[in-house]
Amino acid sequence: MLSYRHSFHAGNHGDVLKHISQMLLIDKLKSKNKGFCYIDTHSGAGIYQLDSDEALKTKEFQQGIDCLVGKSTQNQTVSDYLSLVSSYRKFMQYPGSPEIAKSMLRPQDKLVLIELHNQEIQNLRSNMGGKNIAIHHRDGYEGLLALTPPEMQRGIVLIDPSYEVASEYQQVVDTVISAYKKWNSAIYAIWYPLIADRAAADPSFSSSNSKQGKSESMLEGLQQHPFKNLLKVELRVTKGEQAAGMYGSGMAIINAPWQFDHRVQEALVELTPLMAQNDSASFSVDWLIAE
């Protein structure tokens, strides 16, 4: 059993990018009355305590959500995000992607949560519950392939692995390609880290155990598949050469909906200066596969 616990990282700058992207995508699906299915392959605990031993050990939330709470914003997307998460922050909590999805979904929508970790699945079941919510204790990649396609044609899949082992980057590519063949109408949203001191990308992922350069190779692997479209969104809170470890993160969006690129870019214009660790912070929104 892998040991990764997101409680050490909840509310960091990677979560901010992931959850703003998630909210925008769900909001787009809600523009139609017909229901949709939301699948979270690596659900974690659902809700996290920022005063826990794990969160206080790393204090990553201080360089994430705490850079934003109480700040004024002119962007509606950022305002909606802050309105949602600030209500949890008052109680020293941060909502994970399952809780955010639950708060946004309607009675006609379905929530499917998958988690493998023995302790986290217990926490998830304690934190989450209600009608139209299914919780599965199983491997996220296996579960996604087993549960697709759902009865609903419309939907979104959030894939947010720990990348605890380097081979997992290739596993994401293989699983997404297989899932897309079964359910090509869904939106696939894949979070990935940007890691400092990157080594040369190796598409085979077999040259070393290092995770440096793996995200870039993962994107190259996805780009070789004939998806309808593929959008890359990245937020860098500093330059890679100025950081030790994760200096930013990205979202790879397959079947990105109309105008999502413009809306996330407008949000990042306001977010990036607030999240910046120095004047080297930046963001980018690029189509790797355009329709």
Results as ranks from 00 to 15, higher is better:
residue 80 D to F: 08
residue 174 D to S: 12
residue 161 P to L: 09
residue 111 L to C: 11
residue 188 Y to E: 06
residue 99 E to A: 14
residue 40 D to C: 02
residue 263 R to F: 13
residue 122 Q to W: 00
residue 43 S to P: 02
residue 291 E to N: 13
residue 20 I to E: 00
residue 286 D to P: 01
residue 188 Y to P: 05
residue 5 R to Y: 09
residue 66 D to P: 01
residue 224 Q to W: 04
residue 200 A to G: 13
residue 90 K to H: 15
residue 188 Y to D: 06
residue 212 Q to V: 04
residue 288 L to P: 03
residue 13 H to T: 07
residue 239 K to H: 05
residue 191 W to H: 12
residue 31 S to M: 15
residue 20 I to L: 07
residue 54 E to F: 01
residue 132 N to L: 00
residue 278 N to W: 06
residue 97 S to Q: 11
residue 1 M to A: 11
residue 23 M to G: 02
residue 108 Q to N: 10
residue 231 L to F: 03
residue 291 E to F: 04
residue 111 L to M: 10
residue 211 K to T: 05
residue 138 R to F: 00
residue 19 H to F: 09
residue 268 L to E: 03
residue 38 Y to W: 07
residue 19 H to L: 05
residue 274 L to F: 10
residue 144 L to D: 09
residue 270 E to P: 03
residue 144 L to M: 09
residue 171 Q to Y: 02
residue 245 G to S: 06
residue 48 Y to G: 02
residue 265 Q to F: 12
residue 112 V to W: 10
residue 17 L to R: 00
residue 30 K to L: 15
residue 146 A to Y: 07
residue 54 E to A: 13
residue 131 K to T: 13
residue 140 G to W: 02
residue 101 A to L: 14
residue 289 I to S: 04
residue 231 L to T: 02
residue 201 A to Y: 12
residue 275 M to T: 05
residue 59 K to L: 09
residue 167 S to K: 15
residue 131 K to G: 05
residue 147 L to D: 07
residue 273 P to E: 10
residue 157 V to S: 04
residue 226 P to A: 14
residue 124 L to K: 10
residue 103 S to Y: 00
residue 102 K to N: 14
residue 222 L to P: 03
residue 290 A to N: 14
residue 169 Y to D: 04
residue 41 T to L: 07
residue 52 S to R: 08
residue 184 N to F: 08
residue 73 T to G: 09
residue 153 Q to S: 09
residue 208 S to F: 07
residue 175 T to V: 08
residue 201 A to I: 02
residue 170 Q to E: 09
residue 11 G to H: 00
residue 15 D to N: 11
residue 250 G to N: 10
residue 90 K to P: 05
residue 134 A to Y: 13
residue 125 R to W: 01
residue 85 V to D: 00
residue 192 Y to K: 03
residue 284 S to N: 08
residue 198 R to Q: 15
